[in-house]
């Protein structure tokens, strides 16, 4: 019996779907957001949307990275030990 150590365990990588969120926020939602004419605190809504989109994107990647790390924890020690 063999155990996968690399990135290819398909069933355990479902959380990677979180990476779709940034595309929905910064691309798919734009035509709708552009219909709204508002400027909270004098800054245009579209600019707010894009700026918050940066944080949403970084947050999504960070969550996926944490979950990936939790899965890779046993394997992740190997390369650091070899490289030094």
């Amino acid at each position: 019996m063999e155990v996968e150590t690399s990135m290819s365990g398909p069933t355990r990588r479902r959380h990677r779907l979180l990476l779709v969120i940034p595309y929905l926020w910064t691309v798919a939602a734009v035509p709708a957001v552009n219909l709204v004419h508002a400027s909270p605190l004098d800054v245009p809504l579209l600019l707010w949307w894009a700026l918050i989109g940066v944080l949403v994107t970084a947050g999504s990647i960070a969550v996926v990275w944490r979950l990936d790390n939790a899965l890779d924890a046993p394997a992740a020690d190997e390369p650091t030990a070899v490289q030094r």
Binding site: R16, Y23, T26, W65
Partner: peptide, 16 residues
């Protein structure tokens, strides 16, 4: 403003 999405989405794709 489209420029703001450039690098972040680049890294989403890059992560994979």
């Amino acid at each position: 403003f489209y420029i703001l999405a450039n690098a972040p989405l680049g890294y989403v794709l890059g992560y994979w």
